[in-house]
Design a protein around this nucleic acid. Structure first.
Lengths: 150, 150
DNA sequence: AGGACATAGTGTACATTATTCACAATGAAA
DNA sequence: TTTCATTGTGAATAATGTACACTATGTCCT
């Protein structure tokens, strides 16, 4: 049974990245579920807030899930009043999904909270430290080839 | 519509942590599913490899899931030959779960691959860079209070 | 010893998330 | 117009994980 002390720092770093992401993810999930949102449904709001109204097909590509799943997500979000479906102006097959007033406010609010969280976590680091941290992240990401999430 | 350039570095850092963890998680998941393992089931092997044979109740605590779920996970892992159930020597209610020879080899192999991956990702960083990176991760983790995963 | 109470594992039922496949309605191209 | 592609959705299914009830034990208390 090996003890922590033997661990090369690379592995510790890898573990810590997972641990941090896991904990942050849990916190996010918990915060979202208090508003009746799942991660996937919140992501819909996020994408719509960032990129504006969108056809379901585009949503499915942005979320990397099946069009069928988008139907389900939008069903719930619509029933809860976060988004609204409207007919596409030129293509009568397609459905345009846009944020309602409520959805817009919620998305803006969540975005603000995200910024606050980032500030609370990293805000007191020196510019140098943050730059190093970020540079390493970018470097590692580049190494594994970042195709996802643009 | 704001552009990337406006983003404070804190937020970029937060995003990159998620992006990195997400991509690494996807890679892990993909590697695991080639061996017929899900993340949860692989975690069972991981825990057993780290801490030795264990009663299902302990597994449920280590994995932070319900005892009922452990039953299901062990059912599959046992059917596939990764682990074996044996009666607890003193407590006849409990079931001891241990790695089979196959499971042991697989776990050792996966552990080695994890180390290789960590080395491939962080191996060429200077000691200073790695130390800074790690220090920031630890600091941020400490800030949000690390109760999970020991 | 006997009884009260906690604990370990599992059957049954269920919720959630996400996928595949088939299909109707519509668009686009020949 | 005929053909083919595309959009969204119904129906069925798979994977994960939970809650609750129940049996078989262990433990503790007089």
């Amino acid at each position: 049974m090996t003890h922590m002390a033997d661990m090369p720092q690379h592995i510790v770093a890898l573990d810590r990245v997972f641990e941090l992401a896991g904990r942050l993810g849990d916190m996010m999930e918990h915060a979202l579920e208090e508003r009746g949102l799942s991660t996937a449904r919140a992501e819909v709001l996020f994408v719509l807030h960032q990129q504006g109204p969108m056809v379901q097909r585009e949503l499915s590509q942005a979320l990397r899930c099946t069009p069928r799943h988008v139907t389900g997500l939008v069903d719930i979000l619509e029933a809860q009043g976060w988004v609204a479906r409207s007919p596409h102006p030129t293509d009568r097959r397609a459905t345009l999904v846009s944020l309602t007033e409520t959805g817009m406010k919620a998305a803006a609010r969540m975005d603000a909270e995200r910024r606050e969280a980032a500030d609370a976590l990293f805000g007191d680091l020196s510019a140098d430290q943050l730059a190093t941290f970020l540079a390493i992240l970018e470097r590692v990401l580049a190494r594994i080839g970042r195709s996802a999430s643009t």
